[in-house]
């Protein structure tokens, strides 16, 4: 506290005390997690849910998975022709679909590549286990997560809504996206 630093010394100290006092009057930022569940955004990457009826056992997700944590077993079944004299069709039947969440790195590539919308992100995250082997979720457990998947986000304002059929929207969507991609290429 000599004369030359007295100018900034005491006001600086008082300012520091004022800052902490002001912080005390404001509400704390603490997340009281187990008591108050967090308000996660709907597209949080919590757990991967499986819509089993959409899955065709195409294995794309299992192949693209960077750490190979998706296990798929399936067999082919012959479906009798629907019309008289028609040809028999073969169809994949899913026997096992499992994701090992002890390996999963939550990259979401499986969900991106799924051509039939069978995999979804769910914001649920409370599935810690005491045994690491219990983190292997089989298809019934993956199916249970479907109930927690939030509704798809609303379309942006001004987005074209010229596709009336909701079931066809998925395969038709990539086409307008592809068109601008291919245009500048040639």
């Amino acid at each position: 506290m000599t004369d030359q630093d007295k100018k900034g010394f005491v006001p600086g100290l008082l300012k520091g005390m004022g800052t902490t006092a002001r912080a005390m009057t404001r509400h704390a930022h603490t997340q009281e997690y187990p008591d108050v569940s967090p308000q996660l955004p709907p597209r949080s990457r919590g757990v991967i849910a499986l819509e089993e009826s959409n899955c065709t056992s195409c294995m794309l997700c299992a192949r693209e998975c960077p750490d190979w944590c998706i296990y798929i077993d399936s067999h082919k079944e012959t479906v009798p022709p629907t019309t008289e004299g028609g040809r028999e069709r073969k169809e994949n039947v899913l026997d096992r679909f499992a994701i090992d969440f002890s390996l999963c790195m939550y990259c979401g590539i499986c969900i991106e590549v799924c051509p039939f919308d069978a995999l979804f992100w769910s914001p649920e995250f409370e599935y810690a286990e005491t045994d690491i082997r219990d983190l292997l979720h089989e298809k019934d457990r993956l199916g249970q997560w479907m109930a927690t998947v939030p509704a798809p986000p609303a379309l942006d304002q001004g987005a074209p809504v010229d596709q009336p059929e909701p079931t066809e929207s998925a395969p038709s969507e990539p086409q307008p996206a592809q068109a601008p991609d291919e245009d500048p290429a040639p």
Binding site: T20, A21, A23, M24, R26, A28, H29, T30, E32
Partner: peptide
């Protein structure tokens, strides 16, 4: 508690 609230925390709960 004082330090927690002065730092925007709750402290022991």
């Amino acid at each position: 508690k004082l330090m927690a609230h002065m730092q925007g925390r709750l402290g022991p709960m």
